[in-house]
Amino acid sequence: MSSSGSVTPKVTFDPAHPPVIEGFSPTSQRFRDESFKDKLKRKIGENPVVPLGCLATAGALSYGLYCFHRGNSQRSQLMMRTRILAQGFTVVAILGGLAVSAMKSPRPH
């Protein structure tokens, strides 16, 4: 059964040559070749507040679970509330970093 309106691609997709999309520039080769450790260092350098928020969140969670295990429910509740504050701080830090990087990036004319 053949249809008269069948769609056939004019050009086949070649993964070695990605399509050109207006307004989009793929990541440079420099970032593709960096190791995990190098990328982590670069990301921490770009926004050092986010790892602090992550550590604060993990610390509050860990200590809260420890207090819960030991039966200190008041301290456990306090640490769970502290964890929520630390998570909020981390989200605000991420959004702030995105805003700063958006303001720094050159805009096309």
Rank of each mutant, 00 (worst) to 15 (best):
M80K: 07
H17Q: 00
D14I: 09
D33R: 11
S35N: 00
G53E: 01
A58L: 06
D14L: 09
Y63L: 09
R107G: 08
L55E: 06
D33I: 09
G5H: 12
R42V: 00
S6L: 11
S62T: 14
P26C: 02
K104N: 15
A58C: 09
A56M: 03
L55S: 11
R30I: 15
E22V: 02
A102M: 15
C54D: 06
P9T: 11
R75A: 12
R107A: 11
Y63P: 08
V11H: 15
G64R: 01
I84T: 12
P15Q: 12
A93T: 03
G88A: 01
V92Q: 09
Q87E: 14
F24Q: 01
R83S: 05
L40I: 05
V92T: 08
R83V: 04
T8V: 05
L95R: 11
R83Y: 06
S62H: 12
L95F: 10
D38W: 06
S6D: 13
P18F: 00
V100A: 12
S6C: 07
S28F: 08
M103A: 15
F13T: 11
I21R: 03
L78I: 07
V91E: 14
A99V: 14
R81W: 04
P15D: 11
G96D: 06
P18C: 05
K10R: 13
G97E: 05
F13P: 05
I21P: 03
V20I: 04
S28V: 08
G71R: 06
R81D: 04
M103Q: 12
M103T: 13
E46R: 09
P9G: 09
G45F: 02
S6M: 09
V7K: 15
L55M: 14
P15E: 10
G45K: 00
P48N: 08
S35Y: 00
R75G: 08
A58V: 07
R81V: 00
M1L: 05
Q87K: 13
T8F: 02
G5N: 13
S35I: 04
D38K: 14
P18V: 03
G53R: 00
M80L: 09
P108V: 14
S73A: 10
E22C: 06
A60D: 03
V50K: 01
A56T: 04
S2E: 12
V100G: 09
I44K: 07
I84A: 10
S2W: 08
L61F: 10
M1K: 10
M103C: 15
P9W: 11
L78H: 08
R42N: 06
Q77T: 13
